[in-house]
């Protein structure tokens, strides 16, 4: 018994060694500095050092809840995340499957490259692009499109009703290429014999997708959703701050936790308070993902994150 355990260990030894470099990296990059999490609970004085600085309990967290908008901010963060996760999954899986339908290699490569294009540029640049279209005075839509139809100019940056759609669109626009590549590489990995079997059984295209492709993609989809869920309390700062140009009139639909923290600490620059925000976001994300992971695990342990 003992020997067989040792044998097993020896057999797998190469695998442990393979893991080691990254394991050490994570240790240095993440675990070693993790003691710094205490910063969130301290009033830092660098002359005393981080450890010896006095504890202040949860004081550094207070500002996160001090505003009467705390509810709106939390709601926005959660709402957009859930929406984005759901929408991205549906759209990008569909795109991946469609991409796989295209037989012409040149066309397929070209379309793929185009889809990836937005992923290559930063949100700051995207915010200029959006501005180029939506700016009230010089924007393309107001200046050319609406003019052509003899319609009134719209002050896009002053009307919050448009922004849930604009933000969702921009987000999808930027990320769908990336995500569909993830799903696409899973689709091309599917064993062709499965389709042949299904085709022999007289399955229609739709049936093939439902009964062959989707089940094969389940584990990738599950992981991508779980990874998304773990960031449920984070928001893309660039998307919610830069793209709407931090316009005050839009705050009800653009203010998320990251935007709030940025605005709140802009001139304060307190490292304890900013670590408190990060800690809060991580803890909530962690709790949610543990729950989600547990639910996945009950159905199929192989698809779970850990």
């Amino acid at each position: 018994m003992k020997k067989s355990k040792f044998e097993r260990f020896r057999r797998f030894l190469p695998l442990y060694i393979m893991f080691l470099p990254a394991g050490i990296y994570f240790f240095i990059n993440n675990y070693l500095p993790m003691g710094g999490l205490v910063i969130a609970f301290k009033k830092i004085n660098f002359n005393l050092g981080i450890w010896k600085s006095p504890w202040v309990g949860l004081k550094n967290f207070e500002y996160l809840f001090k505003t009467s908008d705390a509810w709106i901010i939390t709601r926005n963060t959660l709402f957009y995340n859930v929406l984005f996760i759901a929408l991205n999954t549906v759209v990008c899986v569909a795109l991946a499957i469609l991409l796989n339908e295209i037989r012409n290699k040149m066309a397929k490569n070209l379309l793929q490259s185009i889809l990836m294009l937005p992923y290559l540029i930063s949100m700051v640049i995207i915010s200029y692009l959006v501005y180029g279209f939506l700016s009230g005075e010089s924007g393309f839509i107001n200046n050319t499109v609406l003019k052509a139809f003899d319609m009134e100019k719209i002050s896009w940056y002053a009307q919050e009703k448009y922004w849930p759609f604009i933000l969702t669109f921009v987000q999808l626009w930027k990320n769908c290429g990336y995500l569909s590549i993830v799903y696409f590489s899973a689709v091309v990995g599917i064993d062709p014999t499965y389709y042949e079997a299904a085709a022999l059984d007289g399955a229609t295209k739709w049936q093939q997708i439902r009964h062959v492709v989707l089940p094969e993609l389940t584990s990738v989809i599950t992981i991508m959703v779980l990874l998304g869920v773990s960031k449920i309390f984070y928001s893309d700062f660039g998307l919610f701050y830069q793209v709407p140009m931090n316009a005050g009139a839009l705050y009800n639909v653009t203010n998320t936790i990251d935007v709030y923290v940025y605005n709140a600490l802009l001139s304060v620059g307190n490292i304890s308070m900013s670590s408190a925000a990060g800690f809060y976001q991580s803890v909530v994300g962690f709790a949610v993902v543990i729950l989600a992971n547990w639910m996945v695990k009950r159905r199929n342990p192989d698809n779970a994150l850990f």
Partner: peptide, 20 residues
Amino acid sequence: NFYVFFTMLFNGGLVPTYLT
């Protein structure tokens, strides 16, 4: 697995990482 995943959510933050 957990060891790796955990780093996705938690790290020491800017200053401690910088000091390391």
